[in-house]
Write a protein that binds this DNA or RNA. Structure first.
Lengths: 197, 197
DNA sequence: GTCTATTATATGTTTCATCATATATCACGC
DNA sequence: GCGTGATATATGATGAAACATATAATAGAC
């Protein structure tokens, strides 16, 4: 499971608590790349501990509730490195938006546009978030820092997809607004189309 | 759930059996957009039947085992149209490849390249599959056919992402091969980098 | 002193997806 | 007549993710 290894990667930097993993990592710089539920994080930490890949130590702190600091064991480090060097199939993407277009024959232009615009705005929001993350990584980094360059590369991978999607959605929206869909209210003649001609 | 509605969309064209949905649809033209396990299809059909959105009739056929033909009820049609016109959040994407780059500080260049190339090849394979699907849709369609244009648009949405991803991976692979990563065996000086300068 | 927000961890339930496996009919080759 | 492959449906087990809820300590406001 990838979440396990994401957590191992984060603990490889330094020991952290479940709370810190959630609030400082998965809700922070990692958010546009991988999100995780709080419940899932604690259960995964427990599982990693049972597997001997991390150890936990309870820390008492004045002024705050106790917390459990997790850190990598040598076995955890090995598991992380092995996972990092192992090629993997890219994930299967299931996007309801594509289905709504695919089956959209009887949906009218206005409804289609509403569906497309909502997705466009959300992809734009994610793109902005990715750019923020990228800027923050750039600010932290030294130019000879392998880790920082790889992080930017990783964020960049998410950026190119988000940008391609926003551009495609903009094209779709413009075309439909121009009445390019056959059978639309704006296309009584059937002469103009999204594709071809 | 989107699978439910994908099935409603397919049954809206014509009545089909579970087997046909699997072999002719989800393993066919729909494959690059949405895949579904056989077990999941039959269980979803059962659920749609219990919800009154489809009806099933057992068909005896000489030379073949019996099959159950499912068709939309009026309620099923309403549910489909309502879903189609409802905007929805785009899915959260969790891509292990991005994590492997993000945490790749201690991975050496050769291992990184192997990971990237494997993903590149698989995205290229998917891109080819999408182009086949697109070509088959284009061959079937009349130019004034709203359904056909929307299907091509939908496939096109998947195409632009796959292409953007392949291009990005090509850039990454070329850069690493050129020794652009700080700390790599090929970059003893630390002077050349993937980003900046 | 009580209420609220923050910090911190934990458990129960449900849904979706995958995998494995079971079962049955029929065509066809041999 | 026996195995094999295609057609066809179904169930059990498991895992990943989401959502809700519970609990508890402390700080600070009022």
């Amino acid at each position: 499971m990838s979440l396990e290894h994401a957590i191992l990667g984060l603990l490889d930097e330094r020991p952290r608590s479940g709370y810190e993993l959630k609030t400082q990592c998965f809700d922070g710089p990692l958010h546009p790349l991988w999100t995780a539920d709080q419940a899932q994080i604690y259960r995964t930490l427990e599982r990693l501990k049972r597997a001997g890949l991390v150890t936990a130590t309870r820390k008492r702190r004045s002024g705050r509730p106790d917390r459990r600091l997790y850190e990598l064991t040598p076995a955890g480090n090995v598991a992380l490195e092995r996972w990092l060097a192992t090629p993997e199939e890219p994930p299967i993407i299931r996007d309801p938006l594509l289905l709504k277009l695919y089956f959209g024959e009887h949906t009218d232009d206005e409804d289609l546009l509403a569906v497309l615009r909502r997705c466009r705005d959300e992809y734009q929001r994610r793109l902005n978030e990715l750019r923020d993350t990228s800027a923050r990584l750039a600010a932290e980094r030294g130019l000879t820092d392998r880790a920082a360059v790889l992080r930017q590369t990783s964020v960049d991978g998410a950026v190119v997809r988000a940008r391609a999607t926003v551009d495609w959605l903009d094209d779709c929206i413009d075309a439909i607004r121009a009445g390019a869909l056959p059978g639309s209210q704006r296309d009584e003649t059937g002469q103009r189309h999204l594709f071809g001609s």
